[in-house]
């Protein structure tokens, strides 16, 4: 999907049939006082290329923890999370940073745009990390801003944008490098219904056009209505994993 390559030599056999992510007996525990809190407990799943899926569940069910581990931002306490053929537990800081730079896009609830950069520069930032040439960068950024309909705001600062516009910039920033996987943590939590639907429709379109895998951590019904696969977590365990036809398209 992306124009950028990654090392396939460690690729898991499971990846051959289009599986991008697998977790095996994944456990994540946090120390709490003298004891331990289990955020994820024996999570096993496989995510295929091009999926549009949601990790749902109540607060504290382990959605964000799972998303962080899949995004190589956190390490499992035991078990394995294999993302694009890489066992995230075996990656050092540099390698996990490289995995994120080259293959993963993130969308956050609070947009997390760099306040001192313009819209254009915010979207351009991941490409700078990739070391892409200026001309190519310019083209890619304009294309990404076209996807989200913000070409008229390229010189605006995040402080001059509405919530919906900020999240669209965040989507453009996540998509600009055409990553294999986009991980979105409560992307619509700060948006009104109209903006939420617009953002989600745009993501669906990108998912269909670019075959990017979208994984949402959410408990927002609006998002859940769009996903084609819903994994429900409760107390760190997968309690339901259903593939379905989205209610909205």
């Amino acid at each position: 999907m992306a124009n950028y390559t990654y090392d396939n030599s460690k690729e898991d056999p499971a990846m051959n049939n289009g599986t991008l992510i697998t977790t095996e007996n994944l456990v994540k525990q946090y120390p709490v006082g003298r004891g331990k809190f289990t955020a994820l407990n024996d999570v096993n799943l496989a995510i295929e290329r091009g999926e549009f899926m949601g990790l749902v569940g109540p607060s504290g069910s382990g959605k964000t923890t799972l998303l962080n581990i899949l995004g190589a931002l956190d390490y499992p306490s035991s078990g394995r999370a294999i993302v694009l053929g890489e066992d995230t537990r075996e990656l050092n800081h540099k390698q996990s940073a490289r995995l994120r730079t080259e293959h993963l896009g993130f969308i956050f609830q609070t947009y997390n745009l760099l306040p001192v950069y313009t819209v254009f520069e915010n979207v351009e930032f991941p490409l700078l990390l990739l070391g892409m040439e200026a001309q190519e960068r310019q083209k890619a950024v304009m294309q990404a801003l076209q996807w989200v309909g913000l070409t008229d705001k390229i010189s605006s600062r995040p402080s001059q944008l509405s919530g919906g516009e900020s999240q669209r910039v965040a989507v453009a920033r996540a998509m600009v490098k055409k990553p294999e996987i986009v991980l979105a943590d409560e992307p619509t939590a700060n948006l009104d219904a109209e903006n939420s639907h617009n953002i989600l429709k745009m993501m669906v379109k990108l998912n269909e056009e670019l075959k990017t895998t979208f994984i949402f951590a959410t408990h927002d019904e609006k998002v859940i209505r769009y996903v084609r696969r819903r994994i429900t977590l409760n107390d760190g365990k997968i309690v339901e994993d259903i593939k379905r036809t989205p209610k909205v398209h």
Binding site: G71, L73, H93, K94, A97, R98, L99, R100, T101, E102, L104, F106, F108, T110, N112, L114, P115, F125, P126, L129, R173
Partner: peptide
């Protein structure tokens, strides 16, 4: 801190 986290999430190395 949030900005630092964002930079890391976007793939910027700690160094």
């Amino acid at each position: 801190r949030k900005e630092i986290g964002t930079l890391m999430a976007l793939g910027m190395e700690r160094g």
